[in-house]
C-alpha cells in the first residue's frame, strides 16, 4: 500500500512539473510583456524597456528555450522569478496562497460533506419529501454557472443590506481595512466576509455531490450485502452507514478527483467576484498585465492543489476499499 502511494506520488510530481512547464511555454509565447511596458504613461525609452525585460527574463527577443531554461533553473531552486512590477513572485505566493487555500478547503469541506450526507439520506428515503426537495434543488443549482451563483449572491446581499438598513452581509474583500476590534472582533469580521464566498463555492459542489451520491447509494441499497448485514442483526442505521454508505463512497471519491479542477476554477471566479486577493484573482489580473512568471506560478499552485486532491483521494480510496490495500 505504501508502495502504491509512493508510485502515485512520483507520477504526480512529474505531472506537476510538466503542467507548469506547458503553462510557462504557452504564456511566454502568447503574452506580450513588451506591449505592457510600451503602453505605460509616460512611455519609457526603448533602452529602459529592453533593460527591464532582460532583468525580468521576459524579453521576447531572447529565444524561448533560453527563457525557459532560466525560469526552470529558478524553479528548481524554489524561485519563481519576479512579477512584471518587479516584486518577488515567491512573496506574492506566500501572501495569496493562504487566502485561496482557506476558501478552497472550507468550500470543499462544507459542500462535499453536506452533499454526501444529504444525497445519501435522500437515497435512503427515496421519493420522500426530503428526497424530492433536495433533488429539485440540486438539479436547479447544477444549471446555474458558478459565476452566476456568485453574482446573484452578491446582488441579493446588497439588496438585503439595503432593506435591513444594516451591513448584515459583506460582499467585497476579505476583511474590513483598518479595523480595530481586538481578536474576536477581527475574527467575526473575517467570518462575516467569508460567508458569501464560501457559500458560493460550496453550493455548486453540494449540488453535484448530492446528486451523484444519491445515485451511487441507490445502486448499493438493493444489494445483497446490505440485506445480509441487516439479516445478521445489524440495526438499519448501522447497516446503512457501515456497509451501504462506505461502498457508495468509493465512486464518489473518484468523482471528487475529476471535479476538483472545476472546483479550483470556481474558486478563481469566486475570488475575483468577491474581491479576495487570492491566487485565482491574481492570475486573472496577471493575464491582463502580461505577467508570464506570475501565470506560471499560479498554474504550478493549481497543479499542486489538483495533485494533492488526487493523492488525498488515493489515500481515502485505499482506506475505504480493502481490495486496493491487499493488491
Amino acid at each position: 500500500m505504501a508502495k502504491f502511494l509512493i508510485r502515485r506520488l512520483l507520477s504526480y510530481l512529474v505531472l506537476i512539473f510538466l503542467a507548469s512547464s506547458i503553462a510557462y511555454l504557452i504564456a511566454a509565447s502568447t503574452l506580450d510583456p513588451r506591449g505592457h511596458f510600451e503602453q505605460m504613461q509616460p512611455p519609457p525609452s526603448d533602452q529602459a524597456i529592453e533593460k527591464e525585460l532582460n532583468k525580468l527574463n521576459l524579453n521576447d527577443e531572447t529565444p524561448l528555450a533560453e527563457r525557459y531554461a532560466t525560469w526552470a533553473t529558478g524553479v528548481a531552486t524554489a524561485d519563481f522569478g519576479r512579477t512584471i512590477k518587479d516584486q518577488s513572485v515567491n512573496e506574492n505566493i506566500a501572501r495569496k496562497a493562504g487566502v485561496s487555500l482557506r476558501l478552497i478547503v472550507a468550500g470543499t469541506l462544507i459542500g462535499a460533506t453536506l452533499g454526501v450526507a444529504m444525497g445519501a439520506y435522500a437515497a435512503v428515503r427515496q421519493y420522500g419529501r426530503f428526497d424530492r426537495v433536495t433533488t429539485v434543488a440540486a438539479f436547479f443549482l447544477l444549471a446555474v454557472p458558478a459565476v452566476v451563483v456568485a453574482v446573484i449572491l452578491q446582488v441579493s446581499a446588497v439588496w438585503l443590506n439595503d432593506v435591513s438598513g444594516m451591513r448584515l452581509l459583506e460582499y467585497g474583500g476579505e476583511y474590513s481595512p483598518n479595523l480595530q476590534a481586538g481578536f474576536w472582533g477581527t475574527l467575526a469580521d473575517r467570518v462575516q466576509h467569508a460567508i458569501l464566498p464560501t457559500l458560493a463555492l460550496s453550493l455548486s459542489l453540494f449540488a453535484a455531490f448530492s446528486r451523484y451520491q444519491r445515485n451511487m447509494m441507490l445502486d448499493v441499497l438493493g444489494s445483497d450485502f446490505v440485506r445480509t448485514a441487516m439479516a445478521k442483526g445489524l440495526t438499519r442505521r448501522a447497516a446503512m452507514i457501515k456497509h451501504a454508505l462506505r461502498t457508495a463512497l468509493i465512486p464518489t471519491i473518484t468523482y471528487f478527483t475529476f471535479t476538483f479542477g472545476i472546483l479550483i476554477a470556481n474558486a478563481t471566479f469566486t475570488e475575483k467576484i468577491f474581491g479576495w486577493h487570492g491566487m485565482g484573482a491574481w492570475v486573472v489580473d496577471s493575464i491582463a498585465t502580461q505577467d508570464v512568471n506570475a501565470v506560471a506560478a499560479v498554474t504550478f499552485f493549481m497543479a499542486v492543489c489538483v495533485m494533492a486532491a488526487s493523492f488525498l483521494s488515493d489515500v481515502l480510496y485505499a482506506w475505504l476499499d480493502p481490495r486496493v490495500r491487499v493488491s
Binding site: 503542467a19 506547458i22 503553462a23 504557452i26 503574452l31 492570475v283
Partner: peptide
Amino acid sequence: TDLFLVLPQFLILAILYPL
C-alpha cells in the same frame, strides 16, 4: 489524458486568449 486533467482548463483558455 492525465496531463490535460491537471492543466486548469480555464487558465489555459485565458492564457491563449490573445491568440
